[in-house]
Design a protein around this nucleic acid. Structure first.
Length: 423
DNA sequence: TCTGGGGTCCTAGGACCC
DNA sequence: TCTGGGGTCCTAGGACCC
């Protein structure tokens, strides 16, 4: 059976999540900002119509936001993560062959559903997801993932499609691909777009017709696979079970520039605690730790950026051991006399915890530190991240990430549940 | 004043081995 | 004077994704 993919993509996902819990926002321009309220990461249709670009720094459009009374939100990842799970669980009912591709997108295999009419099936998916979660989605259908991406784009932007577009059924495929700019093709970033444009390739249609040898040489095997996908030859399979994680990171810009080693050590301790929590949640242990530190690249003044990778003395998931190594690393790369903007901790060489616990023979009492970590995790789960923390994390936290306009965690915190008013 | 965070995969080059 | 070829592993950097 030839493959058939549907790409289901939530419309303006973060913005839609905010609207679900505050319906007075529907039809209004709203934006959601990144950490530290830095950049725009989601926009309602009305905000897009005002010309607010994706990724633009908030301070650059502040007057515009005020003039048009745009509703502005800090990111609320707890809420978005929970809503994402609800959407994915709903989609699972339509096809067990599902790949959760990102927080707001999933590929579904529709093989076996052809007889019902794929467009009709797409409309049903859209209706049920909206009804059960409140989130509007678009559905693109085609015989490869790359084409399903394009179909989804058409569904989103073309009034009259009703949010569903089946490329398989189209006779005018060439005309459609001719209207898609090459930089809007999935897998073509700014660098390859520039390269292709220089060689006269400006549309998805021209990319499809490009010379294989040339593509292979200039864009590698990834580029060639993409071209094949545009031709309707499926090269990218549905990845149903996620591959094991290769690394886990916690990196964050500081709420303000900092210069002292003490403050940086505090931040690195907190970041290490966060990444250690992720590690335990994934039931993994780490063997390698990298710390890094950078100044603000956007600002004038002396720049410094460095990273150090350390092999951990023992494979571990224990916060205190990870903090010890991270602080060791950060002291080694810290230089006096700079204003620092960002630091991070990266764990790699990940091994499933089940494979490491049996044969440890170091001096630590593993049983006790395991108990300590589960106590720590359950208290922080129950009472909020950071309720219990290590002394090296400090108290004042002048460098803390800023979220000035965060909406409530409507779905995950009892004291922030939305309230229904009888009218 | 103010510019995010967390990932993946591929490739080239060097070290090392037989 | 003359100095192979093939393999693996590791790392850094580039490109891309949402």
């Amino acid at each position: 059976m030839p493959p058939v993919f549907a790409l289901v993509d939530c419309n303006n996902f973060y913005a839609s999540c905010e609207q679900v819990f505050n319906p007075t926002l529907e039809g209004k321009p709203i934006v959601v900002l990144s950490n530290n309220d830095g950049c725009v990461v989601a926009r309602s249709n009305e905000a897009k119509a005002l010309g607010i670009g994706m990724g633009i720094p908030e301070f650059q459009i502040r007057p515009l936001l005020r003039t048009h009374r745009v509703h502005v939100f800090s990111s609320n990842y707890t809420l978005y993560g929970d809503m994402s799970q609800r959407v994915m669980e709903t989609l699972e009912r339509f096809s067990p062959d599902l790949e959760v591709y990102s927080i707001d997108e999933a590929f579904l295999s529709l093989v076996g559903f052809e007889h019902r009419g794929l467009t009709e099936h797409g409309r049903l998916i859209r209706r049920i997801v909206k009804q059960w979660t409140g989130i509007p989605v678009s559905v693109g259908i085609a015989e490869t993932k790359a084409l399903a991406k394009i179909a989804n784009r058409v569904a989103k932007r073309t009034p009259g499609t009703g949010g569903v577009f089946d490329l398989l059924a189209r006779q005018d495929r060439e005309a459609l691909l001719g209207r898609v700019a090459v930089e809007d093709v999935w897998g073509i970033g700014p660098n390859h777009a520039r390269l292709l444009n220089q060689h006269g390739i400006t549309t998805a249609l021209q990319l499809r017709e490009a010379d294989d040898q040339w593509i292979r040489k200039r864009m590698g095997i990834v580029g060639l696979r993409l071209v094949m996908e545009l031709r309707g030859v499926s090269c990218l399979d549905l990845e149903q079970c996620p591959a094991p994680k290769q690394g886990l990171t916690c990196s964050r810009a500081f709420g303000k520039l900092i210069s002292t080693l003490t403050e940086i050590e505090e931040a690195v301790s907190v970041y290490t605690s966060r990444v250690a929590e992720k590690l335990r949640r994934e039931r993994l242990t780490a063997t390698v730790l990298t710390v890094f530190l950078t100044t603000n690249e956007f600002k004038e003044g002396p720049q410094y950026s460095n990273a150090l990778t350390l092999k951990l003395p023992v494979v571990t998931d224990t916060t205190s051991e990870l903090i010890r190594s991270a602080l060791h690393g950060i002291r080694a790369i810290y230089r006096d006399g700079y204003l620092y903007k960002k630091a991070g901790v990266l764990l790699t060489g990940l091994v499933p915890a089940s494979q490491t616990q049996a044969d440890l023979f170091d001096y630590q009492d593993r049983g006790r530190s395991k108990q300590l970590m589960s106590a720590l995790d359950s208290i922080n789960d129950r009472w909020g991240a950071g309720t219990l923390q290590y002394a090296s994390s400090g108290i004042t936290k002048a460098w803390k990430t800023q979220f000035h306009r965060r909406s409530p965690a409507y779905t995950t915190h009892w004291d922030e549940l939305p309230v229904a008013h009888a009218s």
